[in-house]
Design a protein around this nucleic acid. Structure first.
Length: 545
DNA sequence: CATGTCACG
DNA sequence: ACGTACGTGACATGA
């Protein structure tokens, strides 16, 4: 419907307020089924005009994602792939780059063709894709009970947004900037000349050409690398690489977080509103963008201070609840390995237990270094590691790493069997699946060349664990959202970070949330191991851990 | 737009 | 002989 075209000579159009008034009852009637391609987006647009879209029964974006998560899901690609139709692209209608015009400037006739095709193709895609989803009972269930209900949960989270302490971020920016200036001076001094510390190319010239240091490794394009691992090694013998490392750490925090986040505040709400991608990650995980709230620093002290800026509204607290060791627990569940099951059942420190098995010790005799080794091995297993990768990670000879792996698989034969089975199954069927039946296709497990096939094998090992964890937390988000609604509570989900849910909770509801949230999250599935959830509350995200 | 780098789980 | 741990998003540089 043409409502807002405003170019010179635009024809008279329908009155927007009148159209919205007439359509609002239908749009808001949950009993009137609607179909969309990425309906979460349309829900936002209508919400901007006071319409609470309800009754979205189907979404072709999510149908495509469940059928083929490894493919593209934009409408132009879907039309081409499933209908053999070459659609009018948005770029064709509006132009792109500097000469792009707004949709209001597009001729009504042209806009009509584009918009009508949009609706037509969406329905045709639904007719092509939905039967294929329904044909697989497990996929149909994930679609109906997980992905579709999740849309409204994500919409609410995005709409609600996250409050930031901009004063703190400004202070941190200044502090980081001052430190960077000091480091820069010292670096120029060491280099004997000024250079751009943000430029890998210039760093490379200074270190490897001017100072003649020996490159540690090369980038994919064949240049000597200046990445963290390389600089850390060079820093053992030279002062400049350490300065560059320190500078880089601060530059990252400042440019990506303390400078950028305040710029992304919505002036109307005073909050940042991320967008969750529900059809991006091939494993079933969510993604977060503009801003990405799933990669806020935590590992360093300085980075951690940025989390203090994620605050609750007055009278509220931030509550964070995360699944403990969820992927290893899922590995125990899928493999049914007796040793792993027993360790989790007993509530043991899993890395300590692993170290005890590998090194043949009593758990109480495991020292910090052996526990660290076991932790690296446990993570490596989830990623489908090779002896080479483990050796590199631990700084060992490959043969030594191989011995650790052999001992691990001797002690946990169920895991060894699972890895073998998964590789075989992936090769036979061309896909792997999560516990609930979400599929990940691996075209390269057969077709690819050596390295690519091995990459596909590692993805095959990892995907069932990462994907099952994604399934579980999605179920939890739906359960938590329903619980809050049923109890008429004012607490709101505000972030999801893969194994963690973050809520903004009014103080009167704090005890109830801390008590019931872990139960809800832990109760989404009956696995062969307990699902443990740790919960904390505080004035900001950092203190909620 | 490609590249290199680095933040997270 | 080479490259090798899974999945993401965003920044600055420089062509």
């Amino acid at each position: 419907m043409p409502l807002a075209h405003n170019y010179a000579g635009a024809p008279q159009q329908l009155d927007r307020a009148a159209v919205l008034k007439r359509m609002k009852p239908w749009l808001e009637d949950a009993g009137r089924a609607k179909l969309g391609q990425n309906a979460k987006y349309d829900t936002h647009i209508l919400a901007n005009y006071g319409v609470r879209l309800a009754g979205v029964a189907h979404d072709t974006l999510l149908q495509s994602y469940l059928l083929e998560s490894h493919q593209r899901h934009d409408m132009d690609s879907l039309a081409e792939r499933h209908l053999g139709v070459k659609t009018i692209t948005y770029d064709e209608v509006t132009g792109k780059g500097a000469s792009r015009i707004s949709f209001e400037q597009v001729a009504v006739e042209r806009a009509t063709e584009y918009a009508a095709e949009d609706a037509d193709v969406t329905l045709q895609l639904h007719q092509a894709l939905y039967p294929r989803v329904e044909a697989d009972e497990k996929l149909a269930r994930i679609y109906r009970e997980m992905e579709m209900p999740l849309v409204t949960v994500l919409f609410s989270m995005e709409r609600h947004g996250v409050l930031l302490d901009t004063g703190l971020l400004r202070d941190l920016s200044r502090e980081f900037g001052e430190k960077m200036g000091e480091i820069e001076k010292k670096a120029f001094d060491q280099a004997g000349q000024p250079f751009n510390l943000n430029s890998p190319k210039q760093i490379q010239e200074i270190l490897f050409e001017k100072q003649g240091l020996k490159p540690v490794k090369k980038t994919p394009s064949g240049q000597p690398s200046t990445d963290e691992e390389s600089l850390a090694e060079l820093a053992l013998d030279h002062p400049l690489p350490k300065l560059i490392l320190d500078y880089r750490g601060l530059a990252k925090l400042k440019s990506t977080y303390t400078d950028k986040l305040p710029e992304m505040l919505n002036p109307k709400t005073g909050r940042v509103h991320t967008t969750y991608g529900q059809a991006v990650a091939v494993t079933g995980r969510l993604a977060s963008n503009d801003p990405n709230l799933q990669n806020i620093p935590i590992r360093t002290t300085e980075g951690r201070r940025i989390r203090e800026a994620f605050i609750a509204a007055p009278g509220c607290k931030i509550v964070s609840a995360d699944y403990s060791q969820i992927e290893l627990r899922i590995m125990a569940h899928i493999s049914r390995d007796a040793g792993l099951l027993k360790a989790f059942a007993a509530g043991e420190d899993i890395h300590r237990a692993t170290a005890a098995e590998i090194f043949g010790l009593d758990p109480k005799d495991v020292d910090a270094e052996k526990r660290r080794y076991a932790k690296v091995i446990n993570f490596g297993l989830i990623y489908g590691m090779s002896a080479f990768g483990l050796a590199r990670q631990l700084g060992l000879e490959r043969s030594a790493a191989q011995q650790y792996m052999d001992r691990y698989f001797m002690r946990y034969p169920g895991v060894a069997d699972y890895m073998k089975r998964t590789r075989e199954e992936a090769r036979e069927r061309g896909y792997v699946e999560t516990v609930l039946g979400r599929r990940l296709w691996l075209p390269e497990i057969r077709g690819g060349n050596g390295p690519r096939r091995q990459g596909a094998e590692r993805a095959a090992i990892n995907a069932p664990m990462q994907g099952t964890a994604a399934d579980l937390i999605k179920m939890a988000m739906i359960a938590v959202d329903r619980w809050l609604a049923e109890k008429r509570m004012k607490s709101r989900l505000i972030m999801q970070v893969h194994d963690e849910l973050v809520l903004e909770v009014p103080e009167p509801e704090l005890e109830a949330v801390k008590r019931d949230l872990p139960k809800l999250m832990g109760g989404v599935a009956e696995l062969a191991v307990p699902l443990v959830v740790d919960v904390g509350a505080g004035p900001n995200w950092d203190r909620a851990h």
